[in-house]
Write a protein that binds this DNA or RNA. Structure first.
Lengths: 230, 230
DNA sequence: TCAAAAGTGTTTTATATACACCCATGT
DNA sequence: ACATGGGTGTATATAAAACACTTTTGA
């Protein structure tokens, strides 16, 4: 087959599934309300067209910032959705990304240009435009799978966190309860958490010790064949 | 941002990284020789443009068949490559797929229209066009990761295989030797292999028992939360 | 009878699981 | 003093790893 460019081209977009964890340890997803047809006034994943002079990830980050004000977050390619009819007007192929963000540092509605953006519970999202329910489901499955063997969960936590916060996070994502003592044993034995001198504040009970994730140590161990596993 | 289609569009292609295992248990990849510029006469992954009336996977299967004659194989989406400059002439975004095929049933050069297609050792591929080295590397990493927790390895084996064949396959992909007794114990305990009455033939030593993978049983166990793990 | 791979169990070690009470703090 | 979550250890069960010889078959 000749290598030429005379074919009609599908439109190419990116979509972002950004997850965050709220103070009640509920998993949330960042959505925008569409201002124009199709699916006008419906909620959708932030995203838009890929420009000719930017990479796919750049496009995803740009759209995310333009539409929600969120930037500088963990972002990874998820899957590319290209079935016919996923957009009612034209052939549109969308490269989906998923992102993780700690909501304590991204208060809802903090963004300047984001009056149409909001966080929704992943467990009960609103009606979503296009095939975005499917994209969301794919992202959730990916998150659940990946969180167990890669230390991406820390992206959802503040820089300094307690072991209970971390445990609750894993319980939320995996949808199961975990044994406190066993969880702590396992997590601490990996040696990826730096214990801080500081302590939790503003709680009506014994203050918990704070930890932070040691990324440098993780990368160092990873080179030696270490496997994160929870 | 308005939802419109007036932007210039990147070209959209698919590329296929099809792996096979030869009789010496070497991992091979299916390549084609380019007949036109750029990279004329160089080897490349089979692939081509996505048409407006076909899904991404359909496009991958069509191109694979057109260029190599290979069809009906296991094929999964790998990653979408969209960096600037990956094609010297134009902005081209490529959705890569990886495939698995048992070479015993796909003898090299069997395809009608495939005079420019050939299998190469993954360990020592020829010079590859575009960013295809990177795509190949990504596919290999994916295969190595996925083969341990999903029973995709069977796609590389004939329908009826011996335990030694299966072990050698895993040793090849994972790049490490495995203990024969432990491997058999683990594999048989999963209960996914149906032992056949038949036996290996044409070997100059004791003939090994043949097994086949029980897909139905796997899917049934999977629903109950069973985890394939090797 | 030789070569070549098939087939088979037990022991040791490491990891996962189950489980309950006292501690520190703020109200 | 009470309510709330923080913090800790041991015993048991399960799984992983290490390891070597006999059997079958065709050449």
């Amino acid at each position: 087959m000749p290598y030429t460019y005379e074919y009609p081209r599908p439109a190419l977009t990116v979509d972002c599934v950004v997850f965050g964890l709220d103070d009640q340890n509920a998993l949330k997803v960042l959505l925008i309300q569409r201002r124009i047809p199709p699916f006008q006034d419906q909620w959708a994943l932030p995203g838009g067209f890929v420009r000719m002079d930017e990479s796919l990830e750049d496009a995803a980050r740009r759209e995310l910032q333009e539409e929600t004000g969120v930037k500088g977050v963990f972002l990874e390619q998820l899957y590319t959705f290209g079935d016919l009819g996923r957009d009612p007007r034209d052939r549109v192929v969308s490269v989906a990304y998923y992102g993780l963000v700690n909501l304590t540092e991204y208060p809802i509605q903090a963004a300047t240009d984001a009056r149409d953006a909001a966080w929704f519970p992943v467990a009960s999202p609103p009606y979503l435009a296009f095939d975005h329910p499917q994209i969301l489901a794919t992202a959730l499955t990916r998150l659940q799978g990946k969180v167990r063997y890669q230390p991406i969960g820390f992206e959802l936590l503040p820089a300094k966190f307690t072991l209970t916060q971390m445990q609750k996070l894993y319980e939320t994502i995996l949808g199961q309860t975990l044994d406190k003592r066993n969880f702590r044993k396992k997590v601490l034995k990996m040696g990826l958490l730096t214990p801080l001198a500081e302590v939790q504040m503003g709680v009506a009970h014994r203050a918990a010790k704070l930890y932070q994730f040691d990324l440098a140590k993780y990368q160092q161990l990873k080179e030696k064949g270490f496997n994160f596993e929870l």
